[in-house]
Design a binder for these strands. Structure first.
Lengths: 152, 152
DNA sequence: TCACTATTGACAACCGGTTGCCTTTATTGG
DNA sequence: CCAATAAAGGCAACCGGTTGTCAATAGTGA
């Protein structure tokens, strides 16, 4: 890997490829639980929050658009995996939380994932994952800044 | 970051987020060149190959499905950025290469990207990018194996 | 040679995300 | 208090990818 800028090119392509692979893998992993990658991720966002969230808040925390998050939320509602709560501070914008079915479902897939993650952990040094995390966060934040400046 | 398996969870989420950010950023970056992230990437695959490739080969090299690659190829053909060549070894499956317009277009965006990448290079240690690349490649390859075993 | 299988392209449906537009409700400043 | 603005939901169109199916061509092994 001669030129430094080529390393970045490689990194971006690696991100694209890893994303594709993980989505595909995630869909298969989640299928036995009646979930897809996207729904799993959305349940995770709700499960990890300490309190119910409104759709725009969830979108923000996941780094997707309001409409994108809403789409999944509506689907998860249809499947009774999440439920609405009245929002005391905004009548029009309900809060969302896992239903009891959703909690059971999420805990099951979470347990399975943790087992898998532990087996991954044996194959790559913890320190290196940490560095990869830092670099990716840096990559996203550098380019996210660019976007903020332009839009709206 | 206490548990080792949580690091992997973070990494996967970081990949998803970086992917979203980079696609969005790439679309804006490529727009002045009359390209999108996807078309840019596809032109790149052709430009970097030492010889014309058939659609299934391109798909393979990019890690997407045959149909997905074909879709973009057909669009790039419509825009006259690439051209077909008869494939001596398979009558039904033409080879694709950049047209002269496509070459000019690609060289222009490539030059702009390299400038950007050099400015990124000043912000993260080369060694760390290398580690991130390794980890991501490892992540993708571990899960890609899983997929291979199952499908077809 | 000829049947069987693999490869390929075309087409359509779907998935998850985006953008854009419109309407409704909250919020805020004068 | 009320007008202007911001926040939120709903809807539709699109983008880039997937899967699945079909028909046609290549490649193959008996």
């Amino acid at each position: 890997m001669a030129k430094i800028e080529d390393q970045w090119t490689t990194l971006v392509l690696a991100v694209f490829r890893a994303n594709g692979t993980m989505m595909q893998w995630g869909d298969r992993f989640a299928a036995p639980f009646g979930l897809t990658s996207a729904r799993w991720q959305m349940l995770g966002a709700l499960a990890l929050s300490d309190r119910p969230l409104s759709a725009p808040r969830i979108a923000e925390s996941m780094g997707v658009t309001r409409q994108g998050a809403q789409k999944q939320l509506n689907l998860l509602l249809d499947e009774k995996l999440i439920q609405r709560l009245p929002n005391p501070s905004n009548m029009r914008s309900p809060l969302y939380e896992l239903s009891s079915t959703g909690e059971v479902r999420y805990r099951a897939i979470e347990a399975a994932w943790k087992m898998h993650a532990r087996s991954l952990a044996r194959q790559v040094k913890s320190q290196e994952i940490g560095i990869a995390n830092q670099v990716l966060a840096h990559l996203a934040s550098l380019h996210h800044q660019d976007l903020e400046g332009e839009d709206q």
